[in-house]
Design a protein around this nucleic acid. Sequence first.
DNA 1: CGCATAATTCAACATCTGTTGAATTTCCCG
DNA 2: CGGGAAATTCAACAGATGTTGAATTATGCG
Lengths: 205, 205
Amino acid sequence: MATGAILDAAQEVFSRSGLEGGSLRAIARRAGCDPALIYYHFANKEALFLALVDRRLPPLGADLERLAADPGPGNLETRLWAVLETFRRHLGEDLGFRTLLRGQVAQGTDSVRNAVEHHLRRIATPVSQILCQGMASGEVRKDLDPLLTTFFILRMHLEILDLFPSLGGRLTGMRGPRALEQARRTWLEFVLRALAPPSPPEVRP
Amino acid sequence: MATGAILDAAQEVFSRSGLEGGSLRAIARRAGCDPALIYYHFANKEALFLALVDRRLPPLGADLERLAADPGPGNLETRLWAVLETFRRHLGEDLGFRTLLRGQVAQGTDSVRNAVEHHLRRIATPVSQILCQGMASGEVRKDLDPLLTTFFILRMHLEILDLFPSLGGRLTGMRGPRALEQARRTWLEFVLRALAPPSPPEVRP
DNA sequence: CGCATAATTCAACATCTGTTGAATTTCCCG
DNA sequence: CGGGAAATTCAACAGATGTTGAATTATGCG
């Protein structure tokens, strides 16, 4: 039994029931092994959760760093949409994992929060760099805090992924499979209006 | 033992440990009664949670409806800040309750989601009305979905309240007791830029 | 007081929880 | 095949969980 198989099972169980609600016995049952085996591979429940995060977040951070390092031909809208799409690819299908992670950041143990914070910094930094590049090219107004703005952009995008299917869609009346993408697009337009400098931008590619 | 005392205890316990994690025995201990008494006043754990929501959210909705019904002398910025302040007054000190509520909306039982959705509709409607009034007065661009925009404004504001103390502040380097209010102010300015109509607004009060 | 009714507690149910130390199986290498 | 190490299981701990039916206490009223 590879540790990866246990992580797979842990991800499914934690995603459905949360960190406290998901039991090691349920994970072991899904992985097809004894609960005690989990303690052979991981020190305890918390270490199991952190291993899950360690497996999941670094690839996202790496993709974002690649996006920030290569300005490419696109304008700001194209680049930010690529950021949002990267998030959707990595975390889009996993409401449970996102909820789990957010819950631990907001209310988790200090040790868990510290461990997760390190990953989140690696995720936020490249996006804020993209914003700074936009400031340099005149596409973004210069009186913004790049990291706080990054927090706005990314966190609301995740909120759309989390809540729009169950809540936002029913409140706004937007339905169907395209509704989610439309809401994300609308959010990006909202962001671009807020980022735009006071005077029309001079294109300097 | 009034049902209100049990609700007080339930709020504290659920806020700290969540719906599944918070035990009826812990609630009873804090309320100073036997666990079985809770079943005399409430059908089960879920009904207890819904009674908590029923006690907490309607006053917020009522305050917002008052804000929407009385345009007053203020401009859009003043009115939206009043909305955010109303949220802060009602829910600002209670991270646990906000987390609990959001978790149930995102991943709760269908019956819980339906019950909560009704309250949220009463909260979102007056804010979207304020946006519509802004459209009529030329302060807000007219090509926006009022409810989706309301979702953006309110949800991100709650995210700031939830995550900024533990995460946002440490990522951005903003510290101290004024940092939270500054972040909320920054968010409002962000929103106002995104709402502003293309041409400078004609003031028609 | 006496009594009906409301409020509260007791005791128990079966089941689940994270964790651990010892016992067992599986595997690989000589 | 032999043996040592790695992988896996067993059994148990002490306690918590939501819920319920019966038993008990408190309350209000005539």
